[in-house]
Design a protein around this nucleic acid. Structure first.
Length: 287
DNA sequence: AAGAGGCCCTGATAGC
DNA sequence: TGCTATCAGGGCCTCT
């Protein structure tokens, strides 16, 4: 589910709820996440205070009081739920991950706080937790990652230079976390639509002004998605947690065979496959 | 050595 | 109704 905006929504929710709190206990029900959770994980977190919750790309970074860190990646289907003890004292308007009706299965990890617990649910188990001893390990973890779209390093010149002699289509570049961090399959399609660029175009052919558009539109779309509370694709019928609202604003994603939303464009939206992942584009305005 | 594809896993949905 | 096939928002690993 989560691309940068969705992870940011979760971060904001965690900030409100668990910043400054002490982790009294960690319970692991299933260690077999994307990477096997080390057996000492619980011990390393127990009795630690949470100083801050940061985010880089699609990763949550829980900063602990002794300068160690806990990284959380939500994979495709990971969600975090915050449950409070007292009836009627559930968090409201924090994020669509807050679920009064916790799913029955796949609650793999729980953090216990005073009067509250955090539950990590992940049916597909593509997500993971990782404990890092110090800020050096943290640096190392992200050293090969490209800048986030909001970073001033992500500018038109960076794109132009990066694309030189590279024979890869622009859609796959937007998904390439070494090039740019935080964009996933949904927003990649949306960014290229807004930029009127064909996703199959080899990046080396992109003109400077197209690179400018990609930079501007990446920021615009991600910012707007954060503002709207992220995107919720699968519906949360069984929960009363908030959902995101940005999916209502998708211009191409999931709109196969429908009309282009651009005023004065009579094109239809096509679904194509690139590197085994679906891409949506308008046949007319993304020629 | 860049880039494509397979694969990890479960669940929802479509088609028969 | 119940089977099977396909697909899903990520990213690591392997192969060419």
């Amino acid at each position: 589910m989560p691309e940068l905006p969705e992870v940011e929504i979760v971060r904001q929710s965690l900030l409100k709820n668990i910043k400054g709190k002490k982790i009294n206990k960690v319970l692991v029900r299933n260690r077999n996440l994307r990477f096997k959770l080390e057996t000492s994980f619980e011990k390393k977190l127990k009795n630690k205070f949470i100083l801050n919750i940061k985010r880089f790309s699609k990763y949550l970074i829980i900063e602990l009081a002794n300068k160690s860190f806990c990284i959380v990646h939500l994979g495709m289907s990971g969600t975090i739920h915050i449950l409070k003890n007292k009836r009627g004292n559930l968090p409201t308007n924090t994020s669509f991950y807050n679920s009064p009706n916790l799913p029955k299965n796949h609650n793999h990890v729980e953090f216990f706080f005073k009067n509250m617990k955090l539950v990590y649910n992940d049916p597909r188990r593509f997500g993971y937790f990782q404990f890092l001893n110090n800020s050096n390990s943290l640096k190392k973890k992200f050293k090969n990652f490209g800048p986030e779209p909001f970073d001033k390093k992500f500018n038109p010149n960076y794109l132009v230079n990066y694309f030189k002699k590279k024979d890869k289509n622009i859609k796959n570049f937007l998904l390439d976390q070494n090039f740019v961090s935080g964009i996933g399959n949904i927003y990649a399609s949306e960014i290229l639509y807004l930029s009127k660029i064909n996703p199959s175009l080899s990046a080396k052919y992109l003109k400077k002004n197209q690179c400018i558009n990609i930079v501007i539109n990446s920021r615009k779309i991600l910012k707007n998605a954060i503002k709207k509370g992220g995107s919720t694709i699968r519906d949360f019928k069984n929960t009363r947690g908030d959902q995101g609202n940005f999916q209502k604003e998708f211009k191409v994603y999931g709109r196969d065979k429908q009309n282009c939303k651009r005023f004065s464009c009579s094109g239809k939206i096509n679904k194509i496959t690139q590197s085994n992942r679906s891409t949506f584009l308008c046949e007319m305005c993304q020629k």
